[in-house]
Design a protein around this nucleic acid. Structure first.
Length: 270
DNA sequence: CGTATCCTGACC
DNA sequence: GGTCAGGATACG
């Protein structure tokens, strides 16, 4: 599940392929992807050069020389794959950005729910998006102001991209475990000390997932063969219903909040 | 505020 | 062969 750390890493790979290069052709392979990227937009993309790629939350903003922006969201399963000239397209290839030179950056997405939209120069994008989860602007002061009037569960608040950009369902559970705060705690009732812990929890969870070198943690965790285990220890609570809490040994619980699975330890998260 | 919707792979 | 997850958005 691409959240901020995974999107950041993907944007880095996309940068290496696209920046300074000209788009030769755009091919949409799945009909549902045309909703966000119609033929008209594909035509406008041809001949444009990529100036740079920025990330805000889980969005990637591909800046083009014309001043327009290609806005990409991976949703649940999106990823970039660099396909060489003449090479067979990867599984679940949905949109192909073919560059002058012949190689392509391919959007892969098994569920075809990704969005890729083209925006005119000067158009204000993502105006409602909150501060990035890993930026200093996301801090306890900001969070306190956001939770003030919200009498809903803190976990649901953390998934609101207007409050903090880049936190998804997995890392919201993980961060609250780190902070020892119950996902069911009413947001407006949380006081400063606990908000500080939540902010730290989000930062540390995101930070750990972003360290690409040794991924023992994160939604795309891999373990080097020499470690000698089959499965990486991915998460502390997520997807661990019934397993022992890594901190206190109590059984991890699961419940659905706002339509999404929440995992937590009922003993050490209050 | 909650719920349906998009979509398909993974699971029973 | 049916159910379900899940981010963002559109609804009631």
């Amino acid at each position: 599940m691409p959240e901020l750390p995974e999107v950041d890493e993907a944007a880095r790979r996309a940068r290496e392929v696209l920046v300074g290069r000209e788009i030769r052709r755009v091919v949409v392979l799945h009909p549902s992807q045309r909703r966000s990227l119609p033929l008209r937009a594909c035509r406008q993309l041809v001949g444009q050069e990529v100036e740079g790629i920025a990330r805000r939350g889980k969005y990637q903003l591909i800046a083009l020389t014309s001043g327009s922006t290609l806005l990409v969201h991976f949703r649940l399963n999106g990823d970039w794959v660099h396909a060489q000239t003449g090479e067979e397209l990867p599984a679940h290839a949905r949109i192909v950005l073919e560059m002058v030179g012949g190689d392509s950056l391919v959007l892969t997405d098994s569920r075809a729910l990704c969005t890729m939209t083209l925006h005119a120069p000067g158009e204000v994008l993502l105006a409602d998006l909150g501060p990035d989860a890993i930026e200093p602007a996301f801090n306890a002061e900001w969070l306190a102001a956001q939770v003030e009037k919200r009498r809903i569960a803190i976990k649901v608040v953390l998934l609101d991209q207007r409050v903090v950009a880049g936190v998804g369902n997995i890392y919201a559970s993980e961060a609250l475990w780190e902070a020892r705060v119950s996902p069911h705690a009413v947001a407006s009732s949380l006081r400063r000390a606990r908000l500080e812990r939540i902010v730290s929890g989000i930062r540390s969870v995101m930070g750990r997932a972003m360290q690409g070198a040794q991924r023992y943690y994160g939604s795309d965790a891999t373990v080097p063969a020499e470690v000698g285990v089959d499965e990486p220890q991915r998460f502390n609570v997520y997807d661990r219903e019934g397993d022992a809490c890594m901190r206190c040994g109590s059984a991890i619980r699961r419940e659905v909040q706002a339509g999404r699975s929440t995992y937590w330890c009922g003993k050490c998260q209050r």
